[in-house]
Simulated scan of single mutants.
Amino acid sequence: MATVLAFDVYGTLIDTHGVVAELEERLAGRGHGERAAEFSRRWRDKQLEYSFRRGLMGAYVPFDRCTREALEFTDRALQTGLGDGDRDHLMGVYGRLPAFPEAAEALARFAEAGITCVAFSNGTREAVEGLLERAGIRERFEAVVSVDEVKRFKPDPAVYAHLRQRLEVAPGDTWLISSNPFDVIGARHAGLHAAWVRRSPEAPFDPWGIEPDMTVADLDALAERLT
């Protein structure tokens, strides 16, 4: 098989902060509408923290449970007073988050160039399939590879090994595309190539001495480099 691009989903293809408008509406009724952006950031950070902690504990649960528990924690931490109905609604919104504006066109360019693309996510296959379908980009991926298949979370080396085994491709022919530095470092540590999608020019990269093979501002810039 030729080179494969394995795209992280949450934060790379799909905008996890696409929930802010719904958060603002829900929080406004409780006098906290101005905290929607902060709530979104803290929810996302805690979601990832919970996956890391569960990975270290060997206590795997599906990623949507980490997301739900992180939502409840953030509500408690910010004392925003969300009810069960609010949390159910927001979890539904999380299942239909939008793709980043340039994603569809960039993926079309990879397809035209004959480059194989797969989605590679901490989310379950069912969740990711639905998310990509609703975002209108599922058809651009040859496969969806989920960590749920090995009951580990990124950046465990086992998940990157699983990706290669599923695709039957050598490490040097596999590129991880992610906006998350921990994912890029995990892939590089596992012997894969990796491109960091640095969506914010202020975003720092972890000073671990493990660098991405490529850094780009968005998926359009990635397509310019690889097609």
Rank of each mutant, 00 (worst) to 15 (best):
A2G: 15
V4W: 02
L5Q: 00
L5V: 09
F7S: 02
F7L: 06
D15N: 15
D15E: 14
D15W: 08
V20E: 07
L23C: 04
L23Q: 01
E24F: 05
L27P: 00
R30M: 05
E34V: 05
E34N: 06
D45C: 03
Q47T: 13
L48T: 04
E49L: 13
S51I: 09
R53G: 10
R54K: 13
D64M: 14
C66R: 03
E69Q: 15
E72R: 14
F73M: 09
T74D: 00
L78M: 11
L78G: 02
Q79S: 13
Q79M: 02
L82K: 05
D84Y: 07
D84M: 11
D86L: 08
H89S: 14
Y94I: 10
R96K: 14
L97N: 12
L97R: 12
E102S: 10
L107K: 01
G114D: 07
A119E: 10
F120K: 07
S121C: 11
S121W: 06
N122L: 10
E126A: 15
G130P: 12
R134K: 15
G136Y: 14
R138L: 15
R138S: 13
E142R: 15
K151Y: 08
R152G: 05
P155S: 03
D156G: 05
D156M: 04
D156A: 12
P157W: 06
P157Y: 08
V159A: 02
Y160K: 02
L163F: 10
R164L: 15
R164I: 11
R166G: 09
T174A: 13
S178Q: 04
S178L: 05
F182T: 03
D183K: 03
A187R: 00
H189W: 01
L192W: 02
W196P: 04
R198T: 01
R198Q: 05
P204W: 00
D206L: 14
P207D: 09
P207F: 06
P212H: 04
D218V: 07
L219R: 01
D220A: 12
R225P: 05
R225L: 07
T227D: 09
